[in-house]
């Protein structure tokens, strides 16, 4: 019963969130100087007569008032119709699904690597507080946390792709190869550098949070008692600190889907990786309003899912939530 009301509450949040996001993006786009007809026709604009232009405007409903336009857009959204992308000349939902898969591989690898790396580094630093290892890890983390992602991506590209030639310079598959012939290994090979860029930066953040939390946990009464029971070092960490420490890290990591997405946009630009990030930039520059709106809605949902998982995970790991002692 409690779970049901929890889910219902979250679902209400989601609906409100998506509606507000849709409203704001619609307002922004309608205030922007993008002329959808010019974006649609492109260079052939001179060959289109004002009468033809007006016909397209009527066909697209651009003559209607803004609220009417918004309502008709929302109604089609509810029917899962995101419209047609102007630059890809395909349904927006198809474009997004296609790009999203490529991005998911990139973001998924980066997400897992940075989580594991961050927890390991943060735990070592926390257990050796103020020791040499801690100082090294802290220095590493602070430097990387303040490093811009695109710059770091370029650096990796220069060293590993251009200089050493170990990794490809860009794209998600070998140049000139047909879609059907690209193996999973090819994809993996191309995703390594951008994923590394994203994950090394993400690691620093998680490491700092994990270290902070671990130091806090190590001061708690149950750790003091575990020491009084003769535990120390790794077994102390494993038995009593680990679960308490990773909980905020994992939760934070799920909640940072937004940053992950933002980072992916930059990394995809640098590595010419054809993912959702690349698509959103193209849509913005090319005036592809349906695709832009579609991606915004989908990414809002994506970030919401991350936050939702963070919430749920907390409740699964902490027995105080499981036993209903603390409110969901």
């Amino acid at each position: 019963m409690q779970i049901l009301s929890f889910l219902l509450k979250k679902l209400t949040y989601l609906v409100i969130l998506l509606f507000v996001v849709a409203l704001i993006t619609f307002l922004l786009v309608s205030l922007s100087p993008i002329d959808p007809i010019r974006a649609y026709i492109g260079a052939d604009m001179l060959q289109v007569s004002p009468e033809q232009k007006e016909q397209i405007e009527i066909y697209w409903g651009l003559k209607e008032s803004k609220p009417e336009q918004f309502i008709s857009w929302i109604t089609s959204l509810l029917k899962a119709d995101f419209g047609t992308s102007l630059i890809y000349r395909a349904p927006v939902s198809e474009v997004i699904a296609d790009k999203f898969f490529a991005s998911l591989l990139l973001m998924g690898i980066a997400w897992i690597l940075s989580l594991v790396g961050g927890i390991v580094l943060g735990s070592i630093a926390g257990m050796r507080q103020n020791g040499l290892l801690d100082r090294i890890i802290q220095l590493y983390s602070y430097v990387l946390v303040s490093t811009p992602g695109f710059w770091f991506g370029l650096l990796l590209l220069m060293i590993f792709a251009v200089g050493l030639g170990i990794f490809p310079i860009g794209l998600a598959s070998p140049i000139g190869m047909l879609e059907g012939n690209v193996s999973f290994l090819d994809r993996l090979y191309h995703v390594i550098l951008p994923a590394l860029t994203l994950s090394i930066l993400g690691t620093a953040n998680i490491a700092l949070h994990t270290r902070e939390k671990l130091i806090e946990i190590l001061k708690s009464p149950f750790i003091l008692q575990a020491k009084a029971q003769g535990l120390k070092g790794f077994s102390l960490y494993k038995r009593h600190a680990f679960r308490h420490t990773i909980l905020p890290a994992i939760s934070l990591h799920f909640a940072s889907f937004g940053e992950l997405f933002g980072g992916a946009i930059l990394a995809e630009q640098v590595f010419s990786y054809p993912g959702l990030g690349q698509a959103v930039v193209d849509a913005g520059l090319g005036g592809d309003v349906p695709l832009l709106l579609g991606i915004v809605i989908i990414s809002a949902g994506f970030v919401f899912v991350g936050n939702f998982l963070a919430d749920v995970l907390y409740k699964i790991i902490d027995p105080r939530f499981r036993k209903g002692l603390m409110k969901l």
């Binding site: 008692q225 575990a226 009593h240 027995p319």
Partner: peptide, 11 residues
Amino acid sequence: PQTIDALDPFL
């Protein structure tokens, strides 16, 4: 120990 806080709340 003095209080129940000395026991790991997760175990």
